[in-house]
Every structure is written in structure tokens, then in C-alpha cells.
Design a protein around this nucleic acid. Structure first.
Lengths: 345, 345
DNA sequence: TTTCGCGCCGTTAGCGTTAACATAGCGGGT
DNA sequence: ACCCGCTATGTTAACGCTAACGGCGCGAAA
């Protein structure tokens, strides 16, 4: 018995006609049965379903979508899957869409605008019901495509900027700003920043800007800063922390642009026997629950990842079903979690 | 200026006809230009492109796919995005497909067979070029659908079982088995297992079976075992480790079904001042590089996540382009990493 | 009886694109 | 002048499905 090239016999693909012939009714009736639409008697319904099942018929949505001008896909475009944040958002979207009949389709841009443009073009060419896309910064062409698409567009994660249609997210500027205020309120004064070397990660940039603004309002500025790229975040957090403290030993606080490098820093500090949060305070960003279980809880700020996914999905679903209006702006409030690495009053 | 319901003027969607009228050539010629297919003079090509751009025309792939019977989508179906493993696989797939003209479409099943069936049905109804799906265990209906689809099917992650078409993965049974041998070779004898309470995570189950087989071959069996569900893996690792060692204080090795709970266990042991790996050895599974940077490197086994993604994507791309045969079986060799938590000879 | 309504099902005409074939124009070899 | 062959473009007919409408038969109302 030799293996065939594909796990199929090479008869031509099944169509409605096959099912219709097998069950002795018209194609239209089969179509009605399979979509639960229109009146069909119980008897024929069963006959059709039996025929479809026994043939192994799978409807062709390409033809269906073309004929009905309706597509149940929602394009979801994110910069990365390794960021830890985005899988959570996607999960939220996925779950929420599950019972709406809508189907998310994910695309990844690797933080590259050209790539974003290409992915968007590709996805729009499937005429989705809506678009959920991370960030407010897009190429001119990408913005134009979205404006012209005539479908709900939801930009997520970030609200600092001008939206195309709807937005769901948090203000990263404010997140940084609030964290600065909290840190200053706790009495820290000589502060270092550790982040990623990603000019195109606008949200990280805005957090830092908000943070610096917060310091500036107290007449302070960052004493030191360090950026990394690539590699394991936890390990990089260690290295950068070691390097920075070697260079600027009198810092009393380190603000990390994400929890993973923060956790690396925390582990390193604990090993060095540094008094955290007494002599040195630490804070990260994201509230990744993955990290619950560290020896000490890192101060952080919840980025409302699931909630963002859910709300964005609901917006798209609502607009497509009920014909709601769009142009909505939902700013979520990230809650600060002081953890064990900022000293309490 | 009031906000319109959608970010578009409400003219009807653009078609080839609009571009053809704007540029004064036939729809067919426009189609040729936009697809770079067939001979078109440089002059008209430019004219058409200009018209398309100025109108903001985005081709309708639904119609295109129906007419050409070709779809550039690859369905990718995984059980979860929070598992840490799958985002890596997806990244590998995504990257590899980037320069093939193929586009991955992701679906998530939450480890539920009914859900897998539904997602698969939905995806097949878009007539993708190929399917990449995690695992070898599927419902009868799902198997039947894939057998009948007439397209390359690549089952990934796992090779222990009967494949529908092609497989790319590792033997989780062997992974568990090898780890058992390595542990025994290092002289450990009283061994506990800590895992997840997921009867439907077949790969975790197979690792455990392989592991127990390895012990059995040395006349040993698991002294204790503990399972968890939900919550932060790191925290659960701590809790379970504490509980198990309280219950079975004379264990000399703990095998964790994944690195995250292993890391939690490791942190707990270090805090307790337990001599690792002298008095107690630890090992996990996955080789998540996220965890590089822990105080001590947890022994683990690389699951070849990126490589699996890449190879699977290449298989699909190869079969669709070059008409290769399929039915391929690629078993990758997970490498064991002894880390710092298994004592060396 | 006629008429109307309604449940059930069929017929027709696209949806927007591309495959396949047809055609027009043009230069060159004979 | 003729035909050949090539390039550049147009025409026609699907692709597989669904919207819209039409029609038949039957029971109830007039």
C-alpha cells in the first residue's frame, strides 16, 4: 500500500450541488439548511444534514462571502507574539469573539511599519468585518487604507494620539507619569531607567516620556539610563542592573520598561544582598501574572491586557451586529501595584 | 464637523471596474497589473498603478480566490496562546511563511476537542492551502475533515501516534524517558512528579508516561505526584513543591512538567536553603529562554519550538509550490540541558 | 367556491475576480 | 505583398454560493 501524495482521494472538491444531488433537493435548500436560514421542513432538513455529513461536505465560505457580501473575519494586527502582552490580548479577543460568530485572524508585524502595511493590505483584501490593530502610529498609506475600508477600526493598547475610528487602551504617558509620582511620593530621588532599544515601540517610549515628565515636575531628571535588545529579558535585566549600579552606585530607584527585565533586576539585587526596597526601589510595567511567585513581588502597573482585548472585540462585534456607531474612545485605568519593591510610608 | 459612523464616506466599495474606468483600460489588464502576471506595457502599468493608488483600491481576494481556485492562507491551529510554547511556534511559522506569499491564519482551541473541530471546520471552509495543527489526537470528525480536504496537513509538536499526513515534532514519550535516564544516571532514586491537571494535554501525559517507563526500567516508580490547574505557574510551582516536600521529605528529585512551575520550585528550594542539586535535583521541560537569568539554570529539555514552526511552514510551502509529496515524518531531537540542578558525575 | 396567507421549495441572476481564448497591431523575413 | 510571430489588450465564461423573488399546495377565512 503506497502513500498517496495527499491524504485524500483525488476526486474533485465537493460543492453544494453534490449535497443537493445526494439528498434530492435544490442547492438553495441545502444552503438554507446549512446556514439555518429560511424555512425548511424538519424532514428535508434531516435528510440534507445526513447527506452533507456522509459526504463530508464543508461549505465554501469564499463563494458564500462573495455572494452574500458578508465575511465573519476580524483582522487582528499586533507587533509581536514574544512580547507576552499580546498573547494575552489575543486570548481576550478570541474568547469574546467565540460566541459572536466572528472569527479573529491574527497578523504579526514585528514592529515594522512596512510589514504592518503589507499585513493590513493583505487582510483588508479579505474584506473583514472589522480591524483591531495595536497602536496609533501607522504609515500614511496604512491610515488611508483603514479610513477607506468602511468597516469598524479599533486601535488598541494606547490612547495617546489621534485615532482613526475607535480606541481601547491606556495612556502610557500617564502610566509612566503616575509611576513617577508614586516613586517620588515614596521618597526616592536618584532614579535610573532601563528599557528596550526599540524606537518603534511607541508605547514604551511614551511611558518613558511620561515618567520623565513626572520627574521634571519635581525638578528631577533621570540620573542614568540603559537600553537593551535581543536575548532573554530576565538575563538582560540582571546584566543591565549590574552595569548600571556599577556605573551609578548611588541610585536609589530603578524603573524598568517591562516586568521581565525588572524581575531579572530584582533577582540580581536580592542575590547581592541589596536592601530592596529600603536602599533601592524597583518597578516594572505590565503586571504579568506569570511572575507571581518571585521571592518578592515586583511593583508594577497592570496594562489591562485581557480587558483591552475583550472591549475591542466587543466594539467590533457590536458595530457589526447592531450597527452601532463607532468612533468610541475607551481609556482604561491601569492600577498601580506597589508590590514589595517600593517602600511604604 | 460631526463624526461619521465609520471612517469612510459611504460610497460603495471599489472594484476592478472603478480602476479600469479611471485608467481607461479593461478590468483584465488592471488585474494583470495588480498581480504582476502576463504582459503589460510599462506605460499602461504605470497608469493603472497610479489610478489604483489614487483611488485607494484594495483587491478583493474573495472574488480572486473563487475565480482562481487558489488561496494563499495556511490554517494554523494551536491549543493555547498562554502556554508560552505556542507563541514561539507561531513566530517560527510566521517568519518562514513571510517570503513565500503564504499567510498564516491562527486559531485557538483551548485544549477542547469540540472547539478544535469547530475551528477546523471554519478554517477549512476558507479552503486554505494547507493546515498546521498541534497534536495527533483529534476527534473522528476532525480527522475525517482533514483526510478529505485534499491539502497538505502537518501535525506538529508530537510524533508519538499515527499521523494524517505529515508530522513535525519530538517524541514526548522519549523526552520523558531520556530525562528519567539522565536523572537515574546522576544517582537520584526517590523521585516526585509535578504537573498540570490537563487530561487533554496529551504531550504532557506522554512525557510523564515516558518518564515512568524510564523509572520502571530501573525497577523504580514515582514516589509522589502532584497536579495543579489555573493560576500563575511560578506560584503554583512553589506551592506544589512545598506541599510535596512536606508530605514526602525524603524525595531526592522533582521532575516538573514545564519550566515555569520548575522555576517556581527552584526559587522556593533556594529560599529554603535546600542544597540543589546535591540533596535535591530538579528538572523541567521546554527550554524557555525566558528563564535564562534565574539564580541557577534549571535542567530542562529543549522542545525545538522555533524549529518545529519553521519546518512545518516549509513543508506546507514546499508542497504547495513545488507539488512535493507530503506524508513526511520529521522527528526532531530535543537536547537535554543539565543546567545547574542535576548533579554532575 | 373563491381568495388569501403561509410554509416550503425552486429559479434566476449576480457577487468581483481570473483562466482561457480571441484579437488587434506591428515589424521583419521572404 | 504576404504571412509569421510576437506583444499588448480585450471578451467570455466560469468559480460556488446566496439574495430576491416566484410558485405550488394546502388549510382557513370570506
Amino acid at each position: 500500500m503506497s502513500t498517496p501524495p495527499f491524504p485524500t482521494d483525488n476526486r474533485r472538491p465537493l460543492t453544494l450541488r453534490d449535497v443537493s444531488e445526494a439528498s434530492g433537493v435544490s442547492e438553495m435548500t441545502v444552503s438554507r439548511v446549512l446556514r439555518n436560514r429560511g424555512d425548511v421542513s424538519e424532514a428535508t432538513r434531516e435528510r440534507v444534514l445526513a447527506a452533507a455529513k456522509s459526504l463530508g461536505y464543508v461549505p465554501n465560505k469564499i463563494a458564500g462571502a462573495l455572494a452574500s457580501q458578508r465575511v465573519n473575519l476580524v483582522a487582528v494586527i499586533v507587533p509581536s507574539l514574544s512580547n507576552l502582552v499580546f498573547p494575552d490580548v489575543l486570548t481576550g479577543i478570541s474568547r469574546t469573539l467565540e460566541d459572536t460568530g466572528l472569527q479573529p485572524v491574527f497578523g504579526v508585524t514585528n514592529y515594522r511599519p512596512e510589514r504592518e502595511e503589507a499585513v493590513l493590505y493583505e487582510m483588508l483584501s479579505w474584506r473583514p468585518t472589522g480591524v483591531i490593530i495595536a497602536g496609533l502610529e501607522h504609515s500614511e498609506a496604512a491610515r488611508a487604507m483603514m479610513m477607506n475600508a468602511g468597516i469598524p477600526i479599533v486601535e488598541i493598547m494606547d490612547v495617546d494620539g489621534e485615532a482613526i475610528d475607535s480606541v481601547v487602551g491606556i495612556s502610557h504617558f500617564r502610566a509612566g507619569h503616575e509611576m513617577a509620582k508614586a516613586i517620588l511620593a515614596a521618597g526616592y530621588r536618584r532614579i535610573g531607567f532601563l528599557g528596550t532599544k526599540m524606537p518603534l515601540d511607541h508605547r514604551a517610549r511614551k511611558r518613558m516620556e511620561g515618567f520623565e515628565r513626572g520627574l521634571a515636575e519635581a525638578g528631577l531628571k533621570l540620573e542614568d539610563r540603559e537600553f537593551y535588545e535581543g536575548g532573554s529579558a530576565l538575563a538582560k535585566g540582571r546584566e543591565m542592573t549590574a552595569a548600571m549600579l556599577a556605573r551609578s552606585p548611588d541610585l536609589d530607584f530603578l524603573y524598568y520598561s517591562n516586568d521581565m527585565i525588572g524581575a531579572g533586576g530584582l533577582l540580581w539585587c536580592l542575590e547581592q544582598g541589596i536592601d530592596v526596597p529600603g536602599r533601592l526601589g524597583l518597578a516594572g510595567f505590565n503586571g504579568v501574572d506569570l511572575l507571581e511567585g518571585l521571592p518578592r513581588r515586583l511593583a508594577t502597573m497592570d496594562a489591562c491586557r485581557h480587558e483591552i482585548g475583550r472591549r475591542a472585540a466587543k466594539l467590533v462585534a457590536g458595530q457589526s451586529e447592531a450597527g452601532l456607531v463607532g468612533g468610541e474612545r475607551i481609556e482604561l485605568e491601569p492600577t498601580i501595584d506597589m508590590g514589595d519593591t517600593i517602600r511604604r510610608p
